[in-house]
């Protein structure tokens, strides 16, 4: 089966700045793929190149086996993109916007699917509102609907949950999961590691236009990415049980931080072991790793894919 997305040795510079540096990446059909990286890593640049919004300096990209330059018609028909920036055409209503977008993809009678999209994205009562009258989060929902009018094989969401309330976030993920179950390939960029962890099968991390990690979620978790357990004791801590030594990320005065592998570690077990070791536990906190923690760990770890 042909790859949903194939990115080969793609480079793109803005003057001196290398936004993408010989980046290669394949995404299989039916994957739920997470594209992560700090601000300015090149995620949106890569998505723009994939969508034909940008020309690259070198390399090639294809969607469902269609080169995005040579076979741009097939490539673009197979791709739906939710841009990171909220944009809209202030002249039209939500429904008009979606009808036009369907037509652009050559679909003339799409009201059934449009109704379903409106419904699923909680826009049904705004269908006849002008785009200008929508709140920011609602405009983003319309962007998502616009990317889906032609039921693309591959859906790329560039930070779809930025500025979106919890309720929509939940319903959006339910909907995207459904699309995934129905066979759509999903590519998601996000700054929330938990979000990627919860949803994605495979995660790529890029930094400065280069791929620094590309792994299944399980492998990433096995590297101890995810959470850190902070334990504060009443007295200063001198040591931890030997089996935990390799997992300690910080040990200072009366605090110790232990990197958790959520798949295998039980917080209760660790606490029990620490108490047995003689710690008089005063305070416990489970912290979500920030992406920055992950990058630091990945770039220093010898096992990190480089």
């Amino acid at each position: 089966m042909v790859d949903a997305i194939k990115i080969e040795n793609v480079s793109k510079s803005y003057g001196e700045l290398r936004a993408l540096n010989k980046l290669s990446l394949n995404i299989k059909q039916g994957e739920f793929f997470g594209l992560l990286g700090p601000n300015g890593a090149g995620k949106s640049t890569l998505i723009s190149a994939l969508a034909g919004l940008l020309s690259t300096d070198a390399g090639s990209l294809s969607v469902m086996g269609h080169d995005v330059v040579a076979d741009y018609r097939q490539a673009r028909s197979a791709l739906g993109v939710v841009p990171q920036e909220i944009v809209m055409d202030p002249f039209f209503t939500v429904r008009e916007t979606l009808e036009f977008q369907s037509g652009y993809f050559g679909i003339s009678n799409n009201s059934q699917w449009i109704d379903e999209l409106l419904d699923q994205l909680g826009l049904a009562d705004k269908a006849n509102s002008n785009m200008r009258q929508l709140s920011g989060g609602m405009k983003r929902r319309v962007l998502i609907a616009q990317a889906l009018v032609h039921k693309p094989n591959v859906l790329v969401l560039d930070e779809p949950t930025a500025g979106v309330d919890v309720e929509l976030r939940q319903s959006l993920w339910r909907f995207v999961r459904r699309l995934h179950r129905e066979g759509h390939t999903i590519v998601l960029t996000t700054h929330y590691l938990e979000e990627a962890e919860e949803l994605c099968d495979r995660i790529a991390i890029i930094n400065k236009g280069e791929l620094i990690a590309l792994e299944s979620k399980e492998d990433l978790l096995a590297k101890g990415l995810g959470n850190t357990l902070l334990v504060r004791s009443k007295q200063s801590i001198n040591s931890v049980p030997p089996s935990y030594e390799s997992k300690v990320s910080r040990l200072e005065a009366n605090e110790v931080e232990i990197v958790l592998n959520r798949e295998v570690d039980s917080v209760m077990q660790i606490l029990d072991d620490l108490r047995q070791h003689g710690l008089d536990i005063e305070f416990v906190n489970v912290m979500n790793d920030s992406l920055e923690d992950v990058f630091v760990r990945l770039t220093v770890a010898p096992g990190g894919a480089r």
Binding site: R73, M88, P90, Q146
Partner: peptide
């Protein structure tokens, strides 16, 4: 207008010749 507002992407993303 569509360049300044960014809504030009809605025309650039579809497979128009």
């Amino acid at each position: 207008q569509s360049k300044v507002m960014g809504s030009i992407v809605f025309v650039l993303l579809p497979p128009f010749s």
